[in-house]
Simulated scan of single mutants.
Amino acid sequence: MSTGSKKSYLQYCGVARTLDLVGERWTLLLVRDLLLGPQRYSDLLDGLPGLTTNLLARRLKCLEEDGLVEKVKLPPPNPAKVYQLTELGRELEPLVLEACEWGNRFMAQPAPEEQQNLGWSLLRLKRRYKGNQNFVVELRAPERIFHIALRLNGIQVHQGGNPTAELIITGSTMALHQLFFGPTRASELIGQGEIVAQGEFGRWPRLMAAFGLA
């Protein structure tokens, strides 16, 4: 475990040790965002308003020292330096998904001052996927683009587009959230022009079935 100014509960307990590693403010949110794929320092900073650059640097340093995050250089043509979860860091995914589902019961409509990110909602789909599909869907919100790779035994949710996407769905962040989590039905969202679908429309019923949607 990293040293320095990082606090410890000093308890011989798995829960306490987990909190020693990822329990400080912003740390688990950084893990959540990195579950959506590698990100540049500036992307992480922009995606978490209220997090200062000095604090972000400290949190990333601790995560690197603890073996949960690593900094790598992407291959050409965009050789940027990005942060990504290590294999050990990716093992935190069930914890993040469980926290997301547990906390969701206390959420109503977003307050005006609350930030929204479609990717945070899309991570929940990993628990709802029924399997047995094999195609890619791209979701285009005004602020960000994401894609979901549906595979036989699971899905991958990543920030950014995907040129192999067979179905592209465009809409506001809230409309795309409602597409998967309600309460507005998909047919109503399409009829009202809240979302627009392009591509292989034969994939649409398979997308709905993959997540138990009407």
Rank of each mutant, 00 (worst) to 15 (best):
L88E: 11
I155T: 03
Q133N: 08
G131W: 00
Q178E: 05
R124L: 11
P110C: 03
K81V: 13
L122W: 05
Q156G: 13
R140W: 02
P142V: 02
Y83F: 14
Q115N: 13
F106P: 00
N153L: 08
H177S: 14
M174E: 14
L176H: 08
A149P: 00
Q133G: 06
H158V: 15
V157P: 11
L125T: 01
E113A: 09
P112C: 07
F146I: 12
W120C: 02
L167F: 03
N117R: 08
T173G: 15
L85M: 04
L118T: 08
V136T: 09
C100P: 04
E113R: 06
K126N: 06
K130P: 10
A175K: 01
G160V: 12
G161Y: 00
A149S: 10
F106R: 00
R128Q: 15
L152P: 12
E143G: 09
I148L: 13
L152Y: 12
V157L: 14
F106V: 03
Y83N: 13
E113N: 09
E138Y: 05
R90C: 05
L176M: 07
E98R: 10
P163M: 08
F146E: 08
L152F: 13
E114W: 09
H158F: 14
C100D: 10
L85N: 02
E98H: 08
P142N: 02
A111M: 13
G171T: 01
F180S: 04
R144Y: 08
I155M: 03
V157A: 13
M174L: 15
T170N: 14
Y129S: 03
L176A: 09
P142R: 00
E91R: 15
S172N: 06
